Simulated scan of single mutants.
Amino acid sequence: MSHFGLEFGGEISLRKRRIPALGDRDIYEVKLGEEFLMSSMFVAAEEALSTLGLAQVEGEQLKVVVGGLGLGYTAVAALADERITELLVVDALETVIHWHQQERVPLGKVLNADPRNRYVLGSFFDLATAPETGFDPQQAGKKFDAILLDIDHSPTEYLNPANAGFYTTANLTLMANQLVEDGVFAMWSQNPPEDDFIALLKTVFETVESHLVPFENPFQGGIATNSVYVCKRPIR
Rank of each mutant, 00 (worst) to 15 (best):
P161D: 10
F36M: 14
E58H: 12
T133H: 14
V204W: 04
R17P: 00
D182G: 13
A186M: 07
T156D: 12
T168P: 06
T85N: 12
D145E: 08
K232T: 15
L148E: 08
V120D: 08
A113D: 11
L149V: 15
I151A: 08
R25L: 13
E132H: 12
R25E: 14
R118W: 04
D24G: 02
D195G: 06
V43L: 01
Q178W: 11
E209R: 13
S189V: 04
E132L: 13
T74N: 05
L14N: 04
V64P: 13
T74F: 09
D24N: 15
T203I: 01
D145N: 15
E47C: 13
E35H: 12
G68V: 10
L148F: 11
G72C: 11
A128R: 00
V30C: 06
D81F: 05
G68L: 12
A44G: 00
D91A: 05
K143F: 13
P155Y: 08
G222Y: 08
E60S: 14
V30I: 15
A44P: 00
Q56I: 00
D24L: 12
K202Q: 15
E46P: 01
L22Q: 11
L6T: 09
L62A: 11
V213T: 03
D26R: 00
Q56T: 02
T168N: 06
L149P: 00
V105H: 09
L179A: 08
I27C: 10
G5Q: 06
F185P: 02
L14P: 04
G165F: 11
E11P: 00
G10K: 05
A176R: 01
E29Q: 14
I19E: 12
F8R: 09
N160A: 14
F4D: 03
M41I: 02
S50A: 15
F42K: 01
G10I: 09
G67Y: 11
A75H: 10
H100T: 08
V228S: 00
G108A: 07
G33V: 12
T51P: 03
M187N: 02
M1A: 14
T133V: 15
N117F: 15
M38N: 01
E46R: 00
M175D: 02
D114N: 15
A113T: 03
L49I: 11
E34S: 15
I147P: 02
F215C: 03
E86I: 00
A170T: 12
A55C: 04
A199L: 03
T74G: 07
T51R: 14
F219K: 02
T203L: 11
T156N: 09
L14W: 02
H3M: 01
R233Y: 07
F124Y: 13
E94F: 05
D81A: 04
S123N: 03
I12N: 01
A80M: 11
L52I: 06
M41F: 10
R15A: 01
L69C: 08
S50V: 01
A45F: 10
F124S: 03
N226Y: 10
R118D: 04
T225V: 09
L121Y: 05
I84C: 03
